[in-house]
Design a protein around this nucleic acid. Structure first.
Lengths: 220, 220
DNA sequence: ATTTGAGTAATGATCGATCATTGCGTAAGT
DNA sequence: ACTTACGCAATGATCGATCATTACTCAAAT
């Protein structure tokens, strides 16, 4: 088995997953506006599939809180607001704070993985690739959660849909991109020296994302 | 509209919800054992419904991590272990800790709701009704999370399925029932005096649930 | 003009049937 | 005996059609 890529699988995975991706892309691209309905049959016809897998895909989007639905009412795109972002960062902060505390002994000072993510984040920033910046910043945070060795914690964190929400927050109301590489250095350093306050540091780092655009620091 | 109860609705709500309840009850009652498969068609035939709503109900159980499934493999009852409980309490601890901090100014010292839950918990304990104990203890914790006024936090907490998991943990391996009423008094008191350490107190309280049976306290 | 209610189109919820994958038993081949 | 390939039953995934609820139109009644 030395073949690197057998062939680009024309249709990989269950249908519902492909549909979910299409819907996700559509939401991120703004094809459906907030408040707009997503009609199961219309999507099904458009993708030339039946209603069933579309339903299932919509359920997954509902779990990500990207759409909301009531019985016999169907799904509609959620109308995001700043409150959603604040709530998200509050929850992320405590989750990732816990993850960091749990991850410190797991990393055991070996932070090469985190350094690699930071490096790519730097590269993306230098190239001005916002999408890649988000992707690598999220990967950085995810690596911490994954290292916590708490499966539930990882599952809950994934259910927040951090990458999609971050992307959307940039699109919907042109929020600032907080994820700059420098901010992650202190975190890497904390893990490197196995600082008992690493959780606290990570928590405050995430929490700072949800804060107003950063007050002018030129006043003592 | 003064009629108190028009009629006990013979079949309320969407089918999938009724089915979900049946499956939940079955799991809690031990009708399906850990590791056992739950076959969509068999359940459908047994309840005289079609496969579709059963599928949807199973998806919800999967979200509660009560069953696990892989594509084309179907669902099977998860094989819970102590690790699951430990993970659950760790996550609950930070979530409810955050909720408590957010809820302090919301309660503003008015803890009548929490007192009521505590009172009922006492009653249930006195009556030896374990199920009611769990129900009221969970309601107590849920009240704190609900008071946090963070919708995402509440949604994430609900997704943990605390009540079902607590009940199951008693059934599967006869875990101890930690939820005794006295333990909740310090929490109520902290909210009453709006203690800035309330979050910390709640966090430690929840975390203590996941600890071993409590070491003998007779040694200084 | 406003309200009420029948009628209807749109669409979610559910159904019964079919397609496709998996698991497993069985037998030929070594 | 062990391995491999074939065939079949079980079952998840998907489909096309039907049922049931909702949202809406519009006209008659007030």
């Amino acid at each position: 088995m030395t073949e690197p890529e057998p062939l680009p699988p024309l249709s990989r995975g269950p249908l519902r997953e492909q549909i979910r991706r299409v819907l996700l892309d559509g939401l991120v691209a703004g094809r459906w506006q907030p408040g707009e309905r997503i009609v199961e049959r219309r999507v099904a016809a458009e993708l030339d599939v039946s209603q069933a897998p579309v339903r299932e895909a919509l359920r997954e989007l509902e779990a990500l809180r990207l759409v909301e639905s009531a019985p016999n009412k169907g799904a509609r795109v959620r109308d995001f607001d700043v409150r959603d972002l604040r709530e998200s960062y509050q929850v992320r902060a405590v989750l990732e704070g816990l993850a960091a505390d749990l991850a410190v002994p797991v990393f055991a000072g070996d932070v090469r993985v985190l350094e690699e993510h930071t490096r790519r984040l730097h590269q993306a920033a230098a190239a001005g690739d916002v999408t890649a910046q988000i992707r690598h910043a999220v990967a950085f945070h995810r690596a911490i959660v994954a290292a916590s060795d708490n499966r539930l914690l990882l599952a809950v964190w994934e259910s927040l849909g951090v990458e999609v929400w971050t992307t959307l927050s940039l699109r919907v109301y042109r929020a600032e991109l907080h994820e700059n590489a420098e901010d992650h250095e202190p975190i890497v350093a904390a893990f490197r020296r196995q600082d008992p306050r690493t959780g606290e540091i990570v928590r405050d780092h995430v929490l700072s994302y949800g804060l107003p655009p950063a007050p002018a620091p030129d006043q003592a």
